[in-house]
């Protein structure tokens, strides 16, 4: 019923993906972030030491990201020294985020990674607190997050990212918008925008929708543009999954 006046070609997959896939996948991890702005306080290291002592096995070898927001300056030597001090507490400083170019350069020089400050999570960052530890704790379980539920129309230009979970949308998804999820995507309404499932590398993720009109479908990095979707599936309720390196579409009725 809706007009989507783009030419449509039959067949699936693109020529470029006929070559064997690159074995480099995305992954997402939660890790602790240390804010450099707070380090300015003189008793910082003793407070950190006290915190680590509360749950030593949780913190042992834990990767730490240094947030440079709101600070300036810092030489390679500074970063090296900070990493050493953290190492004394068995904390592994692995990278930085935020801050400016000179800081990034200095960090890189001592082997720290520069993380993008992109906060795409629909729910923002949450502070990580370990449980206080009288008893020996097992390694922390990966957090299971509730499915992100969107009930209002997703307007053109909007991007929604369900980090670490599935995404369910019960209202129309407009052309020019983007849905991203680490898990599955379900759209119980017309899907006219882009849908990218399994963005962190989960090739078992699937996309479901009630009326297919998507501009682009992707699972774990493999994608189909609208033109490559066979006419038979347009406007129909479908599920999309990844088989090998090809996206397969099946109708749901």
């Amino acid at each position: 019923m809706t007009s989507n006046p783009q030419p449509r070609a039959k067949g699936q997959g693109s020529q470029a993906r006929a070559a064997s896939p690159m074995p480099l996948r995305g992954a997402s991890y939660t890790m602790m972030v240390l804010r450099l702005a707070e380090l300015a306080q003189p008793d910082f290291f003793s407070r950190l030491q006290a915190k680590v002592a509360q749950a030593p096995s949780f913190f042992d070898g834990a990767p730490i990201l240094l947030d440079l927001e709101g600070t300036a300056g810092g030489s390679a030597e500074d970063f090296r020294e900070l990493a050493a001090r953290l190492r004394e507490m068995r904390l592994a400083l692995i990278g930085v985020q935020g801050g400016d170019e000179p800081q990034h350069e200095a960090a890189l020089q001592v082997g720290l990674a520069v993380f993008p400050s992109w906060r795409a999570s629909a729910r923002g960052l949450r502070p990580l607190e370990p449980a206080p530890e009288p008893r020996p704790t097992p390694p922390p379980e990966p957090e299971v997050r509730r499915t992100l539920l969107i009930e209002r129309p997703v307007r053109s230009g909007t991007r929604i990212y369900a980090e670490g979970s599935d995404l369910v949308v019960t209202a129309p998804v407009g052309a020019g918008s983007e849905l991203l999820a680490d898990g599955n995507i379900h759209v119980y309404a017309p899907l006219r925008g882009r849908a990218l499932a399994g963005v962190s590398g989960d090739s078992n993720a699937r996309i479901f929708c009630r009326q297919l009109g998507a501009e682009l479908l992707s699972i774990a990095g493999y994608y189909l543009v609208s033109e490559e979707i066979a006419d038979a599936y347009l406007g129909r309720p479908v599920q999309v999954r990844l088989e090998g390196d090809q996206l397969q579409i099946e109708t749901l009725d």
């Binding site: 129309p153 307007r155 053109s156 230009g157 909007t158 407009g174 052309a175 020019g176 918008s177």
Partner: peptide, 10 residues
């Protein structure tokens, strides 16, 4: 229509 959808988002 596409632009109106965008402005609704805004």
């Amino acid at each position: 229509v596409r632009d109106s959808d965008r402005i609704l988002g805004i």
